Amino acid sequence: MSMNGAYLRVRPAELGWALGDSAWAWSLSEAAQDLQEESRPSPAEARHFTTHKTWHLLAFLTRRAGFPVDLVHGEEPAFTDDWGYGPPRLLTPAQVALAADALHRTPYDQLIRGVDPGELTRAEIYPQIWDSPASLEWARDFYTALVAFFGGAASAGDALLVWID
C-alpha cells in the first residue's frame, strides 16, 4: 500500500461543520472525489487534490526552502479521527493564502536547485527512488498542479484539510 498526500478544500461556511464532525468532513471528501471523477476539474477548481507519493519530497523541498507554513502536513490538528496515516490537519484560509503566495513565488527549478539525490536517500525520503538528479523531475507536474490548487483555494478564501492516506 502506498502513502499519498491528500487535500480537501473546505469553504468558510462549511468549516465549523467540518471541524465539529469528522464523519461529515470525510463524507464531503468522498463526495468531492466522486464528483471529480466525473467532471475532471482543473487543479485550481478541484475540491480534492492528491500529490500521490510525491508528498514526502514536496515536504522536504518546501521545508528546505523555508516556506512559511507546512503545506504538506498542515499546521493545526483538525480532529483526532484517523484518515489513513493519522488524523487530518488544518490550514486556515490565512495559512492557505501564505502557502499559495510562497508556491506562486517559487518555481520548481528554484525548489530543486542544489538538491543532491544522495541527500534525499540519507533523509529516507519516501519513496526511495533517488538514484540520479533526473529523479527530482518526477514531482514537477505534481508541484505545478499543487501551485494551481492552492491558488484556487486561496482565491476562494477556503481552508484546507490535509492528510496522508
Rank of each mutant, 00 (worst) to 15 (best):
Q110E: 12
V162W: 02
E75W: 02
Q110M: 07
G151I: 05
T54M: 12
A102E: 04
R122L: 10
Y7F: 11
F149D: 05
Y143T: 04
T51P: 12
P133L: 07
S29T: 03
A32G: 09
G66I: 09
R40D: 02
T62W: 09
I112G: 02
D34R: 15
V72G: 02
P127M: 14
G118R: 15
S132W: 06
A46Q: 02
R47E: 10
G157Y: 05
A25P: 08
S22V: 08
W138A: 06
I129W: 03
A97Q: 09
A159F: 06
A13L: 06
L160K: 01
M1G: 10
R113D: 13
M1Y: 08
G157M: 05
R40K: 02
Q36P: 13
L35S: 11
T50R: 14
L8D: 04
S27D: 14
T54A: 15
E45F: 02
L8T: 07
T144A: 15
S39C: 02
G5A: 05
H52M: 14
R63A: 13
I112T: 12
E137A: 14
S42Y: 05
G5E: 01
F60M: 02
G86L: 06
R105A: 15
L28M: 15
D101I: 00
P41R: 10
Q95Y: 02
E119K: 12
R63C: 01
P12H: 11
E76P: 01
L35D: 09
A6T: 04
F60N: 01
P93E: 13
A99I: 09
L8P: 06
L15Q: 11
L98W: 11
L58I: 11
Y143S: 03
A159W: 05
T80W: 10
A94G: 06
H104N: 12
A44L: 03
R9Q: 06
